[in-house]
Computed example of a mutant assay.
Amino acid sequence: MTAAPATFFPDTTSYPRVYRLLRAACSPTGTATDVHGEDLQPLGEVLEHAIVAKMLCLLTDWLDRHGHTASLARPMQQFLRGQRRLNTHRWRTHHQEGARVIAVMAGNGIPAAAINGLAHASLLYHGDGSRQSSDVDILIPVEASDDAVNVLIGSGYYATGRRSGALHRDFDDPLVPGLTLDLSTRLAHTSDPDDVANVLARRTPAPQHAADLEPLPILSRDDGFLHTLARVAAQRRWPALADALRYGVDRSTPSDVAIVLPASAQTGWQLLRSCWPHLPEQPPLSGTTGEHR
């Protein structure tokens, strides 16, 4: 039986074919889907939703992995693969700059870690260009906010005025002409300064997918998983859903820190299971207690 669209995707609940394809694109290698080649036609409606949802490169990856790309017109094949190559270049540029600014802040006594798209591109997608993100999100302690802004302005950034904590830097790159850096002092599952400090103390280097890339500090697996689940609950966007699914089927060894499962993360996990009912009742976190907060 074909699963009904999860109700937390208002952009696709009226488009079951689009829902099936985007859900399939979220699924890592080896995850069963209920999508067939005929679901691709016509492709225009699917591409529109994928572009708006920042899922085009992940959809392209799914098309390639399942042998569907060859059935598309050659100009469409060239377009999709060109977007994948562009996104790989964008990821490398963002990684290099994220590692640089975190090192600059560390030199000024400010602990920081990459979160969201940039961190997940390396941790969950192996730097293959399938995870899209338009900016770089950096977690810092709340008490370091002013100092961090001053350090970054001294490092070539300027305030955009569009939202608090957003800084921009221009690049001499025709493909990636600039980068917006978002400084965050909270995570989706907690805004407590002590919690954030503990999370930053557990930072870990992102997997190194290229020898010429500098080490990038990111959240530990469990901390990143909790944050991502809470983002699914709060924002209900496809990329966070894909991230959470990859955490959920990850076979790497979790940390040995006891975890209290926040209510927001529990809600995110149940939303994830509404798309993939085969997932276990509880998220695979190390030392998880039954408490919610």
Rank of each mutant, 00 (worst) to 15 (best):
A197K: 11
R20D: 15
A114C: 10
R203L: 01
G161F: 13
W269K: 06
L167P: 06
A50F: 14
S71H: 13
R293Q: 08
T29E: 14
F9C: 09
T288F: 00
D61W: 13
R273W: 03
R169L: 05
H36P: 00
L80A: 01
R20K: 14
W276I: 02
T93Y: 04
R100D: 06
D135M: 13
S14R: 09
T228D: 02
F9W: 15
R169C: 13
K54R: 12
K54H: 11
V257L: 00
A53V: 06
G30F: 06
T93W: 02
H120I: 07
S27K: 05
S274N: 01
P239D: 07
R65L: 07
E291G: 07
P75W: 10
A263V: 04
C57Q: 12
Y125Q: 00
D173K: 01
T31V: 15
H209I: 14
D222L: 00
D170E: 13
E48L: 12
A234G: 04
H292I: 08
T12M: 07
V46M: 02
L272Y: 12
E214N: 14
S27G: 07
S184M: 13
L40G: 13
G37Y: 02
S252H: 15
D137S: 04
E143S: 10
A50K: 04
V151C: 15
L229H: 13
Q78D: 14
P262G: 09
A258R: 12
Y19G: 03
T93Q: 09
L229T: 13
L124V: 05
G178V: 02
S71D: 07
L183D: 04
P254F: 15
